[in-house]
Simulated scan of single mutants.
Amino acid sequence: MTESKDYNVLFICTGNTARSILAEGLMNDLGSRLPTRRFKAYSAGSQPKGVVNPFALQTLANWRIPTDGFRSKSWDEFAKPGAPVMDFVFTVCDNAAGEVCPFWPGQPMTAHWGVPDPAAVEGTDEEKAKAFLSAAVTLKRRIELMLALPLPSLDTQRIQREIKDIGTR
């Protein structure tokens, strides 16, 4: 029998209102279904706006992913003593990828999984909802690829290469 392992994952975006929220919800939903591994996701921003975009919550709700408890918060929360130790940290916006991140306890593996900002789309509510759906589909595909990795059988360098490669898909 394979030993169970839990992993903590942090998704970062500048404002922590859309992409990182989508990724947190998707990872928590998909990562909780695995038989031998569990993934607990969090999200944060370098300059959090303090509110979650309602289209992000609606997109998750449309996929029957619970939407309560999401909040826009600073990445500083996860660099403090007593914060969950991260195994993985992913930036999902280009701005956050270029910023100097805090020191993450535990030396997590990192990668950039950039996704166009659906919150930047102007137009009708239908056009905005479509942009959020597109971002969510991209993030879901990447998360599913990561969850399919045989992490216990891969060395650290291989995992790092794989998660970076996933960000290009």
Rank of each mutant, 00 (worst) to 15 (best):
A83D: 05
P108L: 08
V115F: 00
R38Y: 10
P118Q: 03
G114V: 04
P102E: 00
E77L: 14
A129G: 06
V51I: 12
G106N: 04
P81A: 13
G25M: 02
E127P: 08
S43R: 05
D29K: 12
H112V: 14
D117P: 09
D76E: 15
W63S: 14
G82W: 00
A79E: 03
S72T: 01
P105V: 11
V121F: 07
T59H: 10
G50Q: 10
S20L: 03
P35L: 09
G69V: 06
E127Q: 15
Q58G: 13
V115E: 07
A61Q: 14
F132P: 07
E99C: 03
P66Q: 11
A111M: 07
V51E: 12
A23S: 04
M86W: 05
D125M: 13
T67G: 08
F39Y: 13
W63L: 13
I21R: 02
L22I: 09
D87H: 06
A83N: 02
R71W: 03
R38A: 15
A131W: 02
M86Q: 07
V115M: 06
L26R: 02
F90L: 10
G82T: 00
G50V: 07
D117F: 04
W113G: 10
R38F: 07
W75V: 11
P116H: 06
N28E: 05
G31V: 11
G106Q: 04
A111Q: 01
M86T: 08
G114Q: 01
N95E: 15
S20W: 01
C93G: 10
W113A: 11
G31M: 10
G50Y: 11
A111P: 09
F55T: 03
T59Q: 14
R33Y: 10
S74Q: 08
K40L: 12
S32M: 02
S46P: 01
A44W: 02
V115N: 03
M27Y: 00
V121M: 10
M109C: 09
P35I: 07
F103G: 11
A120L: 13
A131M: 02
G31H: 06
P84G: 05
P66H: 06
A23R: 00
L57Q: 06
P108Q: 07
W113C: 13
T110G: 15
T124W: 11
L22N: 05
A111L: 06
N62G: 15
V92T: 13
A119I: 08
K73A: 02
R71Q: 10
M109Q: 15
A96F: 02
G25L: 09
G50M: 09
F88I: 09
S74P: 08
F39D: 10
K73G: 09
S74F: 01
E99V: 01
P81I: 04
M86Y: 02
H112A: 13
D76P: 05
A83I: 03
I21D: 09
A83S: 04
H112Y: 14
S20P: 08
Q47D: 11
F78L: 03
L26C: 07
Q107N: 15
P102V: 08
A23K: 08
A119F: 01
A41N: 07
P66M: 01
A44M: 00
F55P: 02
A41C: 04
A131G: 06
A120R: 14
A79I: 01
F103C: 11
E122G: 10
E24G: 03
S32E: 11
P102G: 01
D125Q: 13
A120Q: 12
T67A: 04
K80G: 05
H112N: 14
G50K: 08
F88Y: 15
M109I: 15
P48G: 00
Q58I: 00
